[in-house]
Design a protein around this nucleic acid. Structure first.
Lengths: 215, 215
DNA sequence: CGGCATCGGTGACTTTGGTCACGCTCGCAT
DNA sequence: ATGCGAGCGTGACCAAAGTCACCGATGCCG
């Protein structure tokens, strides 16, 4: 089912031909997923294209040694370029994906996406924009990792992770994993930010008080 | 002029419609560029799509502080996804590009590329593959930077930079810039690799002796 | 209420890699 | 030959951040 909400988030769904629209409506599946669920593993064969209607996904890799690197996050309107890559080239998926917050997802089966990609200009446009847009995000991440100190990276992580009210439900350990560092380091840095009055901390909870100053 | 060499390197050039082929042949320009030339700067408006026939380009960003980060390299058959992004979305270019070795380039003017992109299926396919393929490369780079020690990054840099005979014409300082570190660090690491018998060093020159062991 | 797991704070130490300050040597031009 | 600049080698030092060990606080659940 293609809801108005879905079209609002992914305009290309509304630009399909009548036939394409019917196909999409018939094949699409709406899923509600709680937080912390692992949706894809490295090496999985992609079975459907995931569109994010609400919530957020985190895309990351895990090394042989068990360290994680967050590659990027996907919010409403985004789509995973890796999934597209895997779908269109029929390769295996190269990273892990899990829900960062509870999320509503619209899943389009792989075969359907391939058909639509061939026939529908709007889908091709969408694919192109997903891919080229994500490249910019990846570059930014690369720049950030290789140039910035842990403190700066933590700051931008907090800003990204905060909801509208500046609140974040997470533990120090989770942040450490996302940044690829150790919990103690995160704790110490948070303590410094707290002392500077930029955030408030609590068990499993951080509140960003002065987002501008944090940036 | 579209040479057979160009078609061999970029098959899509041979798959154009007769009309598209004529347009491309009329608009394409062949350039030979020596090593170390800066082709694009951040913020430039893209004037043409660059296809690499031989040699290699390096794509990187520079921070306000003057540090560089190498994003990726482009060899024959590759094309710059950022350029494509900028071209198709009519944005500004987000990174610097310079020749890593002397290179032969085929340049297609921006307006031509946009026309071909609309009309030619082969060009759309090419664009998609450039973008999705490069995403994988960027992810690998991100993983490498955030997980590996300088020594490991240096090792893979040497492997990538070496020609068929394992030779590299570069200075320690250049490597340092490419890896975003200091010359002294590179010198020390190279000394260790040399002591281990993996490479031979000379003024402005490094020879990879045992590529397998280096990896 | 008591037990227990999760979460977070802290001090001490190590490692990595960046910085500073030299000084040497090779190749080239005058 | 002399001088000079680019490239390289090296030791001493410093700062950031990862590691280890440990403990206290919190909250949940039987």
């Amino acid at each position: 089912m293609i809801t108005p909400q879905a079209i609002a988030t992914y305009p290309f769904l509304g630009e399909l031909s009548p036939r394409g629209g019917r196909l999409a409506a018939a094949g699409a599946e709406l899923r509600s997923v709680p937080r912390g669920v692992r949706l894809l593993r490295k090496g999985d064969r992609i079975r459907s294209l995931v569109l994010v209607l609400s919530g957020r996904l985190r895309v990351f890799t895990i090394t042989p040694a068990g360290d994680e690197v967050t590659l990027y996050q996907l919010g409403p309107g985004d789509s995973c370029p890796l999934v597209l890559h895997a779908l269109l080239e029929e390769k295996f998926h190269q990273a892990w994906v899990e829900t960062d917050r509870a999320a509503k997802l619209l899943c389009l089966p792989a075969s359907l996406v391939r058909t639509l990609y061939e026939d529908e200009r709007a889908v091709r446009e969408f694919a192109l924009q997903v891919l080229s847009g994500r490249i910019v995000a990846l570059m930014t991440a690369l720049e950030e990792v290789s140039l910035n100190s842990i403190e700066q990276r933590l700051r931008s992580h907090l800003l990204r992770a905060a909801d509208e009210r500046g609140e974040i439900e997470t533990t120090h350990a989770q942040i450490a994993v996302a940044l690829g560092t150790a919990r103690e380091v995160v704790s110490r840095q948070l303590e410094r930010l707290r002392a500077a009055g930029l955030i408030r901390t609590g068990r499993g909870r951080i509140v960003v008080l002065r987002p501008r100053a944090l940036a």
